[in-house]
Amino acid sequence: MAKSMKSPPPYGVTSVDHALQLAVILQVEGPLTVSEAAGRIGVARSSAHRLLSTLVYRDFAVQDEDRSYRVGPVLEIAAQSHSNASALRAAALGPLRTLVDTLDETANLSIRTGRTARFIASVECSQALRVGSREGMVFPAHLVTGGLIMLAALTDEELDALYASAPAHPAEERPDPAELRGELRAVRRSGVALNLERSERGLVALGRAVTDAHGDTVAAVSVSMPSVRYEPERVREIVAALTTAAESIRAALRSPTPPV
Protein backbone atom coordinates (compact mmCIF):
# COMPACT_ATOMS: atom_id res chain seq x y z
CA MET A 1 0.00 0.00 0.00
CA ALA A 2 1.39 3.45 -0.94
CA LYS A 3 2.28 5.80 1.88
CA SER A 4 0.25 8.99 2.12
CA MET A 5 3.25 11.19 2.77
CA LYS A 6 6.99 11.07 2.20
CA SER A 7 9.43 10.36 5.00
CA PRO A 8 13.03 11.61 4.93
CA PRO A 9 15.41 8.83 3.86
CA PRO A 10 17.45 7.42 6.75
CA TYR A 11 20.65 7.89 4.73
CA GLY A 12 19.95 11.52 3.78
CA VAL A 13 22.81 14.03 3.71
CA THR A 14 21.79 17.37 5.16
CA SER A 15 23.89 19.53 2.83
CA VAL A 16 22.50 17.74 -0.24
CA ASP A 17 18.97 18.21 1.04
CA HIS A 18 19.59 21.91 1.64
CA ALA A 19 21.03 22.38 -1.83
CA LEU A 20 18.02 20.65 -3.39
CA GLN A 21 15.66 22.81 -1.34
CA LEU A 22 17.38 25.95 -2.63
CA ALA A 23 17.25 24.69 -6.21
CA VAL A 24 13.50 24.13 -5.91
CA ILE A 25 12.95 27.56 -4.31
CA LEU A 26 14.91 29.26 -7.11
CA GLN A 27 12.92 27.45 -9.79
CA VAL A 28 9.48 27.90 -8.24
CA GLU A 29 9.71 31.23 -6.42
CA GLY A 30 12.44 33.18 -8.14
CA PRO A 31 15.69 34.94 -7.12
CA LEU A 32 17.15 34.81 -3.61
CA THR A 33 19.85 36.67 -1.71
CA VAL A 34 22.24 34.79 0.54
CA SER A 35 20.42 36.11 3.64
CA GLU A 36 17.04 35.06 2.29
CA ALA A 37 18.38 31.61 1.40
CA ALA A 38 19.85 31.20 4.89
CA GLY A 39 16.54 32.14 6.47
CA ARG A 40 14.49 29.85 4.26
CA ILE A 41 16.44 26.68 5.04
CA GLY A 42 17.60 27.63 8.54
CA VAL A 43 21.38 27.73 8.12
CA ALA A 44 24.13 30.30 8.66
CA ARG A 45 24.82 32.83 5.88
CA SER A 46 28.22 31.24 5.28
CA SER A 47 26.59 27.85 4.74
CA ALA A 48 23.98 29.34 2.42
CA HIS A 49 26.73 31.04 0.42
CA ARG A 50 28.62 27.75 0.01
CA LEU A 51 25.45 25.96 -1.11
CA LEU A 52 24.56 28.66 -3.64
CA SER A 53 28.13 28.74 -4.94
CA THR A 54 27.94 24.99 -5.53
CA LEU A 55 24.66 25.41 -7.42
CA VAL A 56 26.34 28.07 -9.58
CA TYR A 57 29.30 25.76 -10.22
CA ARG A 58 26.95 23.01 -11.44
CA ASP A 59 24.85 25.47 -13.53
CA PHE A 60 21.76 25.10 -11.35
CA ALA A 61 22.01 28.81 -10.49
CA VAL A 62 23.64 32.03 -11.64
CA GLN A 63 24.52 35.16 -9.69
CA ASP A 64 23.23 38.50 -10.94
CA GLU A 65 24.96 41.86 -10.69
CA ASP A 66 22.92 42.72 -7.57
CA ARG A 67 24.46 39.58 -5.98
CA SER A 68 21.14 37.74 -5.84
CA TYR A 69 20.88 34.21 -7.24
CA ARG A 70 18.44 32.92 -9.84
CA VAL A 71 17.91 29.71 -11.80
CA GLY A 72 20.76 28.65 -14.07
CA PRO A 73 20.79 26.80 -17.40
CA VAL A 74 19.99 23.38 -15.92
CA LEU A 75 16.79 24.53 -14.22
CA GLU A 76 15.83 26.81 -17.12
CA ILE A 77 15.95 23.77 -19.40
CA ALA A 78 13.68 21.88 -17.01
CA ALA A 79 11.28 24.82 -16.82
CA GLN A 80 10.93 25.19 -20.57
CA SER A 81 8.80 22.25 -21.65
CA HIS A 82 9.08 23.21 -25.31
CA SER A 83 12.75 22.27 -25.30
CA ASN A 84 11.79 18.72 -24.25
CA ALA A 85 15.41 17.77 -23.69
CA SER A 86 14.58 14.20 -22.69
CA ALA A 87 12.66 13.47 -25.90
CA LEU A 88 15.34 15.15 -28.00
CA ARG A 89 18.07 13.07 -26.38
CA ALA A 90 16.13 9.83 -26.87
CA ALA A 91 15.48 10.68 -30.52
CA ALA A 92 19.12 11.59 -31.12
CA LEU A 93 21.06 8.70 -29.61
CA GLY A 94 20.55 6.30 -32.53
CA PRO A 95 21.40 8.87 -35.23
CA LEU A 96 24.43 10.03 -33.21
CA ARG A 97 25.76 6.47 -33.05
CA THR A 98 25.26 6.13 -36.81
CA LEU A 99 27.06 9.43 -37.30
CA VAL A 100 30.01 8.15 -35.27
CA ASP A 101 30.03 4.90 -37.25
CA THR A 102 30.10 6.90 -40.49
CA LEU A 103 32.79 9.47 -39.63
CA ASP A 104 34.57 7.93 -36.63
CA GLU A 105 34.50 11.30 -34.86
CA THR A 106 32.68 12.30 -31.68
CA ALA A 107 29.06 13.39 -32.23
CA ASN A 108 26.96 15.71 -30.06
CA LEU A 109 23.48 17.13 -29.65
CA SER A 110 23.00 20.54 -28.02
CA ILE A 111 20.14 22.87 -27.17
CA ARG A 112 20.06 26.58 -26.38
CA THR A 113 18.77 28.25 -23.24
CA GLY A 114 19.08 31.99 -23.44
CA ARG A 115 22.69 32.89 -24.20
CA THR A 116 24.05 29.44 -23.38
CA ALA A 117 24.25 26.13 -25.21
CA ARG A 118 24.09 22.82 -23.35
CA PHE A 119 25.26 19.47 -24.67
CA ILE A 120 22.51 16.97 -23.85
CA ALA A 121 23.91 13.93 -25.69
CA SER A 122 27.38 12.88 -26.78
CA VAL A 123 28.74 9.72 -28.39
CA GLU A 124 32.52 9.32 -28.50
CA CYS A 125 34.36 7.80 -31.43
CA SER A 126 36.77 4.88 -31.08
CA GLN A 127 39.97 6.65 -32.10
CA ALA A 128 42.71 6.95 -29.49
CA LEU A 129 43.07 10.68 -30.17
CA ARG A 130 39.53 11.99 -29.92
CA VAL A 131 37.33 14.71 -28.49
CA GLY A 132 35.82 13.50 -25.22
CA SER A 133 32.16 13.56 -24.27
CA ARG A 134 30.70 17.03 -23.76
CA GLU A 135 27.41 15.76 -22.32
CA GLY A 136 26.10 18.03 -19.58
CA MET A 137 28.52 20.86 -20.33
CA VAL A 138 27.32 24.43 -20.79
CA PHE A 139 29.08 27.04 -22.93
CA PRO A 140 28.33 30.57 -24.17
CA ALA A 141 26.21 29.97 -27.26
CA HIS A 142 28.30 32.20 -29.51
CA LEU A 143 31.46 30.18 -28.84
CA VAL A 144 30.30 26.69 -29.85
CA THR A 145 29.08 25.16 -33.09
CA GLY A 146 25.62 24.18 -31.89
CA GLY A 147 25.15 27.56 -30.26
CA LEU A 148 25.94 29.37 -33.52
CA ILE A 149 23.46 27.15 -35.36
CA MET A 150 20.70 27.96 -32.89
CA LEU A 151 21.52 31.67 -32.70
CA ALA A 152 21.33 31.77 -36.50
CA ALA A 153 17.68 30.73 -36.23
CA LEU A 154 16.93 34.09 -34.56
CA THR A 155 16.20 37.32 -36.39
CA ASP A 156 18.58 40.26 -35.87
CA GLU A 157 15.93 41.86 -33.64
CA GLU A 158 15.63 38.73 -31.51
CA LEU A 159 19.41 38.51 -31.31
CA ASP A 160 19.69 42.12 -30.14
CA ALA A 161 17.05 41.51 -27.49
CA LEU A 162 18.82 38.35 -26.32
CA TYR A 163 22.07 40.20 -25.65
CA ALA A 164 20.50 43.47 -24.46
CA SER A 165 20.22 42.44 -20.81
CA ALA A 166 23.11 42.68 -18.38
CA PRO A 167 25.54 39.74 -18.07
CA ALA A 168 24.31 36.98 -15.78
CA HIS A 169 27.61 37.21 -13.90
CA PRO A 170 30.78 39.34 -14.20
CA ALA A 171 32.74 36.61 -16.02
CA GLU A 172 30.15 36.10 -18.76
CA GLU A 173 31.69 36.47 -22.20
CA ARG A 174 29.80 38.75 -24.57
CA PRO A 175 30.27 38.74 -28.35
CA ASP A 176 30.78 41.79 -30.53
CA PRO A 177 27.24 42.36 -31.91
CA ALA A 178 28.25 43.37 -35.45
CA GLU A 179 30.78 40.55 -35.75
CA LEU A 180 28.28 37.98 -34.47
CA ARG A 181 25.56 39.15 -36.86
CA GLY A 182 27.97 38.71 -39.77
CA GLU A 183 28.92 35.22 -38.65
CA LEU A 184 25.30 34.20 -38.25
CA ARG A 185 24.40 35.47 -41.71
CA ALA A 186 27.06 33.12 -43.09
CA VAL A 187 25.60 30.24 -41.06
CA ARG A 188 22.11 30.97 -42.42
CA ARG A 189 23.38 30.99 -46.00
CA SER A 190 25.23 27.69 -45.75
CA GLY A 191 23.13 25.94 -43.13
CA VAL A 192 26.38 24.84 -41.48
CA ALA A 193 28.48 26.22 -38.63
CA LEU A 194 32.23 25.64 -38.62
CA ASN A 195 34.19 26.03 -35.39
CA LEU A 196 37.93 26.25 -36.04
CA GLU A 197 39.38 26.21 -32.52
CA ARG A 198 36.82 28.85 -31.54
CA SER A 199 35.82 27.27 -28.25
CA GLU A 200 38.94 25.25 -27.48
CA ARG A 201 42.46 25.09 -28.88
CA GLY A 202 43.07 21.96 -30.93
CA LEU A 203 39.35 21.30 -31.55
CA VAL A 204 37.37 21.65 -34.78
CA ALA A 205 33.63 21.08 -35.05
CA LEU A 206 30.90 21.30 -37.67
CA GLY A 207 27.16 21.37 -37.05
CA ARG A 208 23.69 21.51 -38.57
CA ALA A 209 20.27 22.41 -37.24
CA VAL A 210 17.72 19.89 -36.03
CA THR A 211 14.21 21.13 -36.84
CA ASP A 212 10.76 20.09 -35.73
CA ALA A 213 7.70 19.39 -37.84
CA HIS A 214 7.12 23.13 -38.25
CA GLY A 215 10.66 23.76 -39.48
CA ASP A 216 11.72 25.52 -36.27
CA THR A 217 15.24 24.88 -34.98
CA VAL A 218 15.02 22.94 -31.70
CA ALA A 219 18.59 21.64 -31.38
CA ALA A 220 21.89 21.25 -33.22
CA VAL A 221 23.80 18.13 -34.18
CA SER A 222 27.56 18.39 -34.52
CA VAL A 223 30.77 16.43 -34.88
CA SER A 224 33.98 17.34 -33.07
CA MET A 225 37.51 16.27 -33.93
CA PRO A 226 41.13 17.10 -33.11
CA SER A 227 42.32 19.90 -35.40
CA VAL A 228 45.21 17.72 -36.63
CA ARG A 229 42.64 15.42 -38.26
CA TYR A 230 40.56 18.14 -39.91
CA GLU A 231 40.90 18.58 -43.64
CA PRO A 232 38.77 21.00 -45.71
CA GLU A 233 38.35 18.20 -48.25
CA ARG A 234 36.29 16.29 -45.65
CA VAL A 235 33.69 19.04 -45.24
CA ARG A 236 31.37 17.74 -47.98
CA GLU A 237 31.40 14.23 -46.46
CA ILE A 238 30.86 15.56 -42.94
CA VAL A 239 28.00 17.87 -43.95
CA ALA A 240 26.27 15.02 -45.79
CA ALA A 241 26.49 12.82 -42.69
CA LEU A 242 25.26 15.66 -40.46
CA THR A 243 22.29 16.26 -42.78
CA THR A 244 21.33 12.59 -42.60
CA ALA A 245 21.62 12.63 -38.81
CA ALA A 246 19.53 15.80 -38.49
CA GLU A 247 16.80 14.33 -40.70
CA SER A 248 16.85 11.07 -38.73
CA ILE A 249 16.46 12.93 -35.43
CA ARG A 250 13.58 14.96 -36.86
CA ALA A 251 11.87 11.76 -38.01
CA ALA A 252 12.42 10.13 -34.61
CA LEU A 253 10.86 13.13 -32.86
CA ARG A 254 7.65 12.52 -34.84
CA SER A 255 7.65 8.88 -33.77
CA PRO A 256 5.70 8.04 -30.56
CA THR A 257 8.57 5.81 -29.46
CA PRO A 258 11.93 7.30 -30.55
CA PRO A 259 14.64 4.66 -30.96
CA VAL A 260 17.34 4.48 -28.30
Rank of each mutant, 00 (worst) to 15 (best):
V71D: 08
Y69T: 01
P258W: 01
A161W: 07
A219K: 11
V123M: 06
I238W: 00
P31S: 04
S81D: 14
R208M: 10
A171P: 03
H142C: 09
A209P: 03
E157I: 10
P167F: 07
V16I: 15
A246H: 01
V144R: 01
R40Y: 11
V13K: 13
G132H: 15
A128P: 02
G39E: 12
P177D: 08
S4K: 13
Q27D: 07
A205L: 03
T155F: 11
I25V: 10
R201V: 12
T116G: 07
I41T: 06
E76H: 11
H142E: 08
G202F: 04
R134P: 02
H142L: 06
G182L: 05
T243D: 15
T102P: 04
V16G: 08
A220S: 11
S248K: 10
S15A: 15
S68K: 01
S224A: 14
A48D: 09
V131D: 09
A166Q: 13
P175Q: 06
D17Q: 11
R208Y: 00
T244A: 13
R229D: 00
A38G: 10
A121R: 07
D66W: 02
D176T: 08
L109K: 07
D212L: 02
S165R: 11
A61K: 05
F119E: 03
S46R: 14
M225I: 01
E233T: 15
Q127V: 08
L162S: 01
A48E: 11
E157P: 05
V28T: 07
A171E: 15
L93R: 13
S165E: 13
P232H: 00
S81E: 10
R234M: 07
A37F: 03
A85Q: 08
R181E: 11
R40T: 10
L96F: 07
V204Y: 00
L148I: 04
N84I: 00
S248M: 11
S165L: 09
T106N: 06
C125V: 01
A178L: 13
R189A: 12
V192Q: 00
I41E: 05
G94A: 14
T14S: 12
E231F: 08
A219Q: 11
E200Y: 05
A186P: 03
Q80E: 14
H169A: 15
R174H: 09
P140D: 02
R236D: 14
A128C: 04
P8T: 12
K3W: 13
I77L: 15
E65T: 11
L148C: 06
Y230A: 01
R115Y: 02
S53N: 13
A220I: 00
R118H: 10
Y69C: 04
G191K: 01
T98I: 07
D160G: 14
V24R: 07
S248N: 14
T102H: 07
V43H: 07
A38H: 10
G215R: 03
T113K: 09
D176P: 06
A209N: 01
M137S: 13
F60H: 12
P140C: 05
V144A: 02
S83Q: 15
V223Y: 05
L75C: 09
R208G: 02
V228K: 08
N108E: 03
L206M: 10
E158Q: 15
L148W: 01
L148A: 07
Q21Y: 04
I149W: 04
G215K: 04
M150L: 14
M137A: 14
V138F: 10
R115F: 05
E65W: 05
L32M: 08
